[in-house]
Design a protein around this nucleic acid. Structure first.
Length: 274
DNA sequence: CGTGTTTGACCCGCGC
DNA sequence: GCGCGGGTCAAACACG
C-alpha cells in the first residue's frame, strides 16, 4: 500500500539521517583523536628531547640565537644542548652586538589540525607561551604569530605558528630550541590527552588508506629494558616502559621519515575534508 | 593593578 | 649602499 510505502520511506529516511549523524559524530571523534595524537606527539617529543639531552654529556654552550636558518632542513638534530638555565643568555646584557652562535637551536615543525573557525593561533602543546609578535609574511596570507615560552628567559624556546597555506585548518608550529624545564602544565595536558584516548593502556593504531602512508603504533608489547628514573620522577603516570617504547618508536619513525607528521596531518585532514 | 595581547616601529640579515 | 622582508621590541591596550 501507499501508506506502507510512505512509512518505509520515512523509516529509510530516518535511518539515513541517523547514519549521517553517526558518521558526523565519528568524523568529529576522529578530529578529536587527531588533535589528541598531535598533543601526544608533542608531549612525547618533549620527553624524548628531555631524555636525550640527559644522556649525552657533550659540553655545549647554550646561546640564544636569532635566526638559525643557514642550511638545514627542519629537523636537524642538534639536541645536546646544555640545559643549564642560569647561564643561558641572561648574563651579559649586550645590547646590540651579535651574539655568538656556537650551536643551532633545534628546529622542529609540527602540524596541528584545528578547527577552521578557530582564529586564535594557539597550539596546545602543554607548555605556556607568551605571544610577542605577529607578522604577515609574504608567502602566506595568514599571519604568523611568534611565541616565547613563559619561562623565558630561562627557557629560550620560541615557536612560530602559522596556518598552512594549503589547508587553512592546519596550523604549522615551528619550534626553536628545547625546553629546559618540565611541562609546567603537565597535568592539564595529560588530562586533555587522555580525555578521549586512553594513551597508556590501550593499543593505539592509526592507519590511512590510499591518501597517505600507513602509520601504526603498536603499544601492546613494549620493551621493558630500561627506564629513566630521573625523568620518571616528575611525570610518569603511564607505564614507564610504554612511554619509553613510544619515545623510541617515535624517534625511529621520525628518523626514518622527517615528514612523518606532515604526511600524517595532510593525509588525515585531506580525508576529513572530503 | 598586574598580566598578557596587540600592533606599529625598529633591527638586522640578505640580495641586488 | 639601499630596499625588502622576517623577527623582535615595547608602548598602548584589554581583561581579570
Amino acid at each position: 500500500m501507499e501508506l506502507g510505502r510512505k512509512v518505509s520511506l520515512k523509516e529509510e529516511n530516518g535511518a539515513l539521517v541517523e547514519e549521517l549523524n553517526r558518521v558526523s559524530a565519528e568524523n568529529k571523534k576522529l578530529t578529536e583523536m587527531l588533535a589528541v595524537m598531535c598533543e601526544n606527539y608533542n608531549a612525547l617529543r618533549g620527553q624524548l628531547m628531555d631524555y636525550m639531552s640527559k644522556n649525552p654529556d657533550k659540553e655545549l654552550s647554550p646561546s640564544r640565537k636569532r635566526k638559525s636558518e643557514s642550511s638545514n632542513n627542519n629537523n636537524d638534530n642538534t639536541i645536546a644542548m646544555n640545559r643549564n638555565s642560569e647561564s643561558s643568555s641572561t648574563d651579559e646584557e649586550s645590547s646590540k652586538k651579535p651574539r655568538e652562535e656556537v650551536i643551532k637551536s633545534k628546529i622542529s615543525r609540527v602540524y596541528m589540525r584545528t578547527e577552521a573557525s578557530d582564529t586564535s593561533l594557539v597550539v596546545k602543546d602543554g607548555y605556556q607561551w607568551r605571544k610577542y609578535g605577529q607578522k604577515v609574511t609574504r608567502d602566506n596570507p595568514s599571519p604568523r604569530a611568534y611565541f616565547k615560552c613563559s619561562f623565558a628567559p630561562s627557557c629560550p624556546v620560541k615557536k612560530k605558528v602559522q596556518r598552512s597555506i594549503e589547508d587553512q585548518s592546519v596550523l604549522v608550529a615551528t619550534y626553536e630550541g628545547e625546553h629546559n624545564h618540565p611541562h609546567p602544565s603537565q597535568m592539564e595536558a595529560t588530562s586533555a590527552a587522555t580525555r578521549s584516548l586512553n594513551f597508556g593502556s590501550a593499543p593505539c593504531s592509526a592507519s590511512l588508506g590510499s591518501a597517505g602512508p600507513t602509520i601504526t603504533l603498536d603499544l601492546t608489547k613494549p620493551k621493558s629494558s630500561n627506564n629513566d628514573a630521573r625523568s620518571s620522577k616528575s611525570r610518569m603516570e603511564a607505564t614507564p616502559e610504554i612511554r619509553q617504547f613510544l619515545v623510541e618508536h617515535m624517534a625511529s619513525s621520525l628518523t626514518k621519515d622527517p615528514n612523518f607528521t606532515a604526511a600524517l596531518a595532510a593525509a588525515i585532514s585531506g580525508r576529513m575534508l572530503q
